[in-house]
């Protein structure tokens, strides 16, 4: 523990990366400040009207969430089979972010659905797999929080299984309920809508990367502090 804490002092290139995160955050913040103007300028969707504007935040957050889930799964695999502690910290940060992004998706989605479909919730493949993925990451965080010592390895196993589970959930719900009205939205977007959509996606990805970096660094500092406490007690 002590050795890990001492040897984990940031080497030079890492320090440079760390200085990059505030910059990324600033860029993301500036992009978010400008995003409403781009969304306002985008053409009106003919049937849904104003409510369709929520799409510019809803879909990019959902895409970022799936990216985040895969980051967590892959980092967990690296931790489990390679034994790299850094990967575990990335996995934990990614899991927390997946949970927050998932919450945003699950709040904005029903708001849109209420106006567009007339119901808050539909048991279609995309909605259900998002909900299940979110539940798996809640379980992951619960395990890490209440599982006691050694739960990091167990949580890594859960993340790996959770990632492998996504295609199965998607397929099974798709066969169970094939009533999705919008199957392929993103490729069929109107030209005027495409710009703001990808702009928002980029903004969310930038925000995601910077928060992930900061959160991972925080977790590392916490581990170092714990190692130092242990060293003092000894």
């Amino acid at each position: 523990m002590l050795n890990e804490g001492l040897s984990a002092r940031s080497p030079k290139p890492k320090a440079k990366m760390n200085r990059l995160y505030p910059l990324l955050l600033l860029v993301a913040a500036a992009m978010f400040a400008y995003a409403p103007f781009m969304i306002l300028a985008a053409p009106y969707e003919s049937t849904m009207g104003l409510i369709q504007k929520i799409f510019y935040f809803h879909a990019p957050v959902a895409m970022t969430m799936f990216v985040s889930a895969f980051v967590c799964g892959i980092a967990s695999a690296i931790f489990l089979f390679g034994g790299r502690l850094g990967a575990d910290r990335v996995a934990m940060a990614a899991a927390e972010l997946t949970s927050i992004l998932g919450l945003i998706v699950l709040v904005t989605g029903p708001m849109w659905a209420r106006k567009a479909w007339g119901v808050w919730w539909q048991w279609d493949a995309r909605l259900t797999s998002t909900l299940v993925l979110w539940l798996i990451f809640q379980a992951y965080l619960l395990l890490r929080r209440f599982g006691g010592p050694g739960s990091d390895r167990l949580a890594a196993g859960v993340a790996l299984f959770g990632m492998a589970n996504v295609p199965f959930v998607y397929w099974s719900v798709n066969v169970w309920r094939t009533v999705h009205p919008t199957t392929t939205v993103v490729p069929s977007l109107q030209p005027g809508m495409r710009g703001p959509f990808w702009y928002c996606f980029l903004a969310f990805v930038l925000l995601y990367v910077s928060v992930l970096g900061v959160r991972t660094r925080l977790e590392k500092r916490r581990a170092e502090l714990e190692a130092l406490y242990l060293a003092v007690e000894e």
Partner: peptide, 13 residues
């Protein structure tokens, strides 16, 4: 309590 919490979401398919 953690066993069902972990098991049910993964075994939904």
């Amino acid at each position: 309590v953690l066993l069902p919490v972990l098991l049910y979401p993964i075994t939904i398919p």
